[in-house]
Design a protein around this nucleic acid. Structure first.
Lengths: 107, 107
DNA sequence: ATATATCATCGTAATATTGCAATATTAAAT
DNA sequence: ATTTAATATTGCAATATTACGATGATATAT
């Protein structure tokens, strides 16, 4: 085995799990936090800030990009990107809904 | 490699990543949602509800337990548990803080 | 006491993730 | 055109995760 049986779960459950998976690594949390606090788009300082190799940072950025959290140009020299705020708000709302939906009468 | 370099990240980043990791699987999202919506503690219906084998469900429950999200007794027959609401609120707050901390002046 | 039901643990196979060195690609600068 | 700087891709090794069958432990029912 080793692969998740995604087909037996609802789209909503798979979606939230996918988002959580991106956040399930301290490097990606650190990257997201760093970018989200910047005044401007950032370019080439993440490798120094985070402390992982350039290929590893690049891979982590790609995971973050996959769920639509980054805006910017991704070609050539001086890649410049920042948080996609609409998407950011969507994710925040997804987690909020998940955690809000609890039955306080239990136990 | 294969293992995360947790030592180079802050405790806060590692903590949030650890929580997200638990949520990074649709089965665990489904389990958490199901339990959190119940009126009473649940016992032996998760295997049927989720659709994974009993050992697999047991493992997922253990992951959820590790971050303190479950309350109840865990030995013998008729295991009975529900959501630890204090911890639930803590996690909600953690995600809320993470997503709130964004600089809206960028780009 | 024995059987039954429920949950945990062990062992194992399949797959995914993490990380980096080496290399490739891209665009600007000289 | 060549060099240089920034990012992406490839390939690989180490480790982690997912899933389940088999088995073990525990408590209730008969």
């Amino acid at each position: 085995m080793g692969a998740s049986k995604t087909h037996i779960f609802s789209t909503a459950h798979n979606e939230l799990a996918k988002i959580a998976k991106v956040m399930a690594h301290p490097a990606r949390i650190a990257i997201l936090e760093y970018i989200s606090k910047q005044d401007n788009c950032i370019c080439n300082d993440l490798v120094d800030v985070i402390g992982l190799s350039q290929p590893t940072i690049s891979q982590h950025l790609n995971e973050i990009k996959k769920i639509g959290l980054l805006r910017g140009t991704f070609e050539g020299k001086n890649l410049c990107y920042c948080i996609n705020q609409e998407r950011w708000d969507e994710l925040q709302q997804s987690f909020h809904l998940f955690f809000s939906n609890i039955n306080r009468n239990c136990c």
